[in-house]
Design a protein around this nucleic acid. Structure first.
Length: 580
RNA sequence: GCGCCUGUAGCUCAACCGGAUAGAGCAACGGCCUUCUAAGCCGUAGGUUGCAGGUUCGAUUCCUGCCAGGCGUGCCA
């Protein structure tokens, strides 16, 4: 409806331009907005004020001219000028319930937009496969998954991807941690490195390794540690690197056994976890593939050829300062190893080579220092950095009964995503994680998330849906005739009913805005408002009345609300229960 | 030090790319169940939008400075 009205005003603008009242270079697009105050009609536009200055005409006078040239439309009942030059539009009575008709026609397609040709990639979570996902990853997972849904609803062709860091030093640390726990199960007395991975799951993997291989890959701990730098606060990195080196030499090819066991079982755990959370991926992209395919070397060669690399202190540097970075970045260390950043460069080249029109990264907010350099890399490789979007997700702070939950990754006593899901359920998790703007801190109140009251927005919205379902199921001998209801929508006369129909009509534009701005929380706010409108109506108006025309009209409206809630919750990955 | 983000009711947050009288929920107070789920609804109260300037018809929104908080700032991953 907004679009239709906007089109009318565009035509009026055409006319004023044709009449030389407005210069075509000064033209600005018509923006139609919903009014807040019913006294201002249904829709309003500031188009007259926007053009008044350039046209050198008083806003209200210009508004008058616009209205003069506004094409006639059945949908519009009245147009008036108000305030400093707003043009308020009052829609015809019949038009107010048009969204209900549309919603019942389109059903689960209602709110979706036409397919575009745009190919979008969303990469999210991408946590190192060195341990189970924790609650910090949960928000990125919920936000990314919702983003994928929103972009699809917008009509884009979307691919979801998880970047698996299976080639870095952290993986070696993981593997050596598992190997040491394995040695313990063979009866070796070991001293666990302070920089190793601590969690219980490491010991379990050590057990599994022992089950698989027996004592066949065991070596004496004192041999392993013989030439290794001692462990201390300042040398713990050298210590663990030494252990890795020593284990690799001792095991040869069999180093793959702890390495692959750890990688595969943890990755599998992450995959199950995300799948149960409703966060789905089309592609699990391996960092290692960039190594084996030679893409890292290739990317470095490309930067070299373009003159963005230089050598200093035995290392190879990328001159990212040419693109606004604070300092230049190393891509190959003096020991010959490429850095993590080098992989990132190759990865972004790989993404662009796959032909995406838009590439979206969802990162934890602690990575914000990387934005400039990754964009710099894209630009240096000759890609358009405008096609690259990086969205940051702030951490969620967990509260339980008003107390902040302390999280310590050091001791391995973090709360896992799985524990959180077991505790509050998938629906509340998915909803709470995205209910606030992604780049803002989020207070995640566990007590609230599990409470079954109207204070809990998830229950509040789901309850509205369940109420509608129960009404529709609770019919007596005369079944609900939807077409009959749609033919008698004029029986809906109260302000509550008008408000509700208007709210239904807003859904498609909310989806559009949420998708275009990548702001998933807008869906949450919208659904809460819709549910509130419904509860208010339901409380004051009996739906199952004897007059079948009235009854079916009300049931049609209720069905529209039911559909919108279901579609909206679906975007969020939250279920819409039929009864509660 | 430098860079990014944030500052709106007592609390948690909105505010439709600059619009009309800044809105919800919680907490507080007062009402509503013989009727489709009270897991709900209605009402009252609550504000110098961190501070000071600037841009213009109009600023919570854009610009500058200051104050406060968060995060980042490795030949780490």
């Amino acid at each position: 409806m907004k679009d239709a009205v906007a089109a009318l005003f565009e035509r009026a603008l055409d006319q004023l331009i044709a009449d030389n009242i407005i210069n075509s270079v000064d033209r600005k697009p018509v923006h139609i907005e919903n009014t807040r105050d019913p006294a201002h009609g249904d829709l309003a536009t500031n188009v007259a004020m926007m053009h008044a200055k350039a046209a050198q005409i008083a806003p209200r006078a210009l508004a008058e001219k616009l209205i003069e040239h506004l094409p006639a439309s059945e949908a519009i009942e009245a147009v008036e000028i108000a305030g400093p030059g707003f043009i308020n539009v009052r829609l015809a009575k019949g038009a107010a319930f048009e969204p209900v008709v549309r919603c019942l026609t389109e059903r689960d397609q209602f709110g979706l937009h036409p397919t575009t040709k745009e190919r979008v990639q969303v990469e999210y979570v991408s946590a190192n496969p060195t341990g189970p996902l924790h609650v910090g990853h949960g928000r990125g997972a919920a936000y990314g998954a919702t983003l994928v849904n929103l972009l699809k609803a917008r009509g884009h062709q979307v691919e979801a991807e998880y970047y698996v860091n299976d080639a870095g030093r952290q993986m070696n640390i993981l593997a050596v941690s598992v190997y040491l726990r394995y040695l313990e199960t063979t009866g070796e007395a070991i001293v666990f490195p302070s920089a190793g991975y601590q969690g219980q799951y490491i010991a379990e993997l050590g057990d599994t390794l022992h089950d698989n291989t027996g004592n066949s890959i065991a070596i004496a701990f004192h041999d392993l540690i013989k030439d290794v730098t001692p462990d201390s606060e300042t040398t713990k990195d050298a210590h663990i690197d030494g252990l890795i080196q020593s284990a690799k030499e001792a095991l040869g090819d069999r180093w793959n056994l702890p390495f692959n066991l750890a990688l595969h079982s943890i990755l599998e755990d992450i995959q199950d976890d995300l799948s149960e959370f409703g966060a789905n991926f089309d592609q699990w992209f391996r960092e290692k593939s960039l190594v084996t395919s030679g893409e890292i070397d290739q990317a470095i060669a490309t930067l070299e050829a373009r003159g963005y690399l230089f050598e200093k202190g035995g290392a190879l540097w990328f001159r990212s300062t040419d693109f606004g970075d604070d300092k230049d970045r190393v891509v190959r260390r003096d020991n010959g190893e490429t850095t993590y950043f080098a992989s990132d460069i190759a990865y972004i080249a790989n993404k662009f080579s796959r032909g995406f029109d838009r590439i979206i990264y969802v990162w934890g907010a602690d990575h914000h220092g990387y934005i400039v350099r990754i964009k710099a890399a894209a630009e240096a490789l000759g890609f358009d950095p405008e096609r690259l979007t990086i969205r940051l997700v702030q951490f969620a702070i967990l509260y339980k009964e008003g107390e902040r939950l302390q999280m310590s990754t050091r001791s391995g006593s973090f709360v896992t995503l799985r524990e959180l899901r077991d505790d509050v359920g998938r629906d509340a998790c998915r909803y709470f994680y995205v209910m606030r703007k992604a780049d803002q801190h989020l207070d995640f109140d566990l007590s609230l998330a599990t409470s079954q009251t109207k204070d809990n927005p998830v229950y509040y919205i789901q309850y509205a849906h369940a109420r509608i379902c129960r009404v529709l199921e609770g019919l007596n001998e005369t079944p609900f005739d939807e077409a009959h209801g749609l033919n008698h929508l004029t029986e809906l006369t109260t302000q509550d009913e008008l408000d509700l129909a208007t709210a239904v009509g807003r859904f498609p534009e909310v989806v559009k805005k949420a998708s275009d701005s990548l702001e998933a929380h807008l869906i949450c706010y919208y659904l809460q408002e819709l549910a509130a409108d419904f509860h208010r109506w339901y409380n004051g108006t009996r739906l199952l009345v004897d007059d079948l025309q009235v009854r079916d009209a009300r049931l049609a409206l209720a069905t529209a609300v039911q559909i919108v809630i279901r579609n909206g919750l679906d975007l969020l990955g939250v279920s819409a229960p039929r009864s509660m």
